[in-house]
């Protein structure tokens, strides 16, 4: 049971998010109204995606420096869970946008950032698919992963500062402004990010273990 504490923690945190996300106090705002609670579920997807992509980057660097096949597998599977989260984030964000900004898709720096992140990681998987030799595949994919991650950071970290955005906290800051979330909301939001990220890691480890079993069978 000892090695499972983090899975329990993730589950508990997400339950906490579901309960307090609906029942807790939220600031009353025009336009957003009650939908401000979507922050706990939509924005967390996006934060978790960044966490997972960063993990994938670390594994790719590890693979390039050590050539360990397991590191490449880890890089691939964390990226694929990251893609899952970003798709969920994109779909939920689109729905939310329909009811607050009035359209499913708006020309917004952050929205574009997520869409482009998806395109980049789709290219990552296409690249993986077009090479057969596992060593070469790991190397090329790792190199592309590092390049892609940096470009993604440029896109989501710098460009929103240069352009106007409908998302909160813009005009200089890609994160949340001080006034967008009160302390009550933070008490739910940050645990929610950790909770969803841990669930993502859990899913990733399951996939990694499955692949390891397949490797064993092949040998």
């Amino acid at each position: 049971m000892k090695q499972h504490w983090w899975k329990v923690l993730g589950v508990v945190l997400v339950f906490y998010t579901i309960i307090w996300g609906f029942l807790g106090e939220v600031p009353a705002r025009f336009i957003l109204n009650e939908s401000i609670r979507a922050t706990y579920f939509h924005v967390t997807m996006w934060f978790s995606m960044i966490i997972l992509m960063t993990a994938s980057l670390v594994f790719s660097i590890q693979y390039l420096s050590k050539g360990n096949r397991l590191a490449d597998l880890k890089a691939k599977e964390t990226a694929s869970t990251g893609v899952l989260f970003s798709i969920i984030g994109l779909v939920t964000g689109s729905l939310w946008a329909r009811f607050t900004w009035g359209a499913f898709w708006v020309n917004d720096a952050k929205l574009n950032g997520t869409a482009i992140t998806l395109l980049i990681y789709a290219a990552y998987f296409v690249l993986r698919g077009s090479v057969d030799d596992p060593q070469k595949k790991g190397r090329l994919a790792g190199v592309y992963n590092i390049f892609a991650y940096v470009m993604m950071l440029v896109f989501i970290g710098i460009l929103p500062r240069m352009t106007d955005s409908l998302h909160p906290g813009n005009g200089g800051n890609p994160a949340f402004g001080q006034y967008d979330m009160d302390s009550q909301m933070r008490m739910v939001f940050y645990p929610a990010v950790i909770g969803f990220a841990l669930i993502g890691v859990w899913i990733t480890t399951l996939r990694i273990r499955m692949q390891k079993l397949i490797w064993k069978k092949e040998n």
């Binding site: 482009i116 395109l119 290219a123 296409v126 077009s130």
Partner: peptide, 15 residues
């Protein structure tokens, strides 16, 4: 893979 250069490079060029 003839589509690969465009797929790999264009998303990176967006910014």
């Amino acid at each position: 893979n003839p589509a690969l250069p465009a797929i790999l490079s264009i998303p990176l060029l967006y910014p």
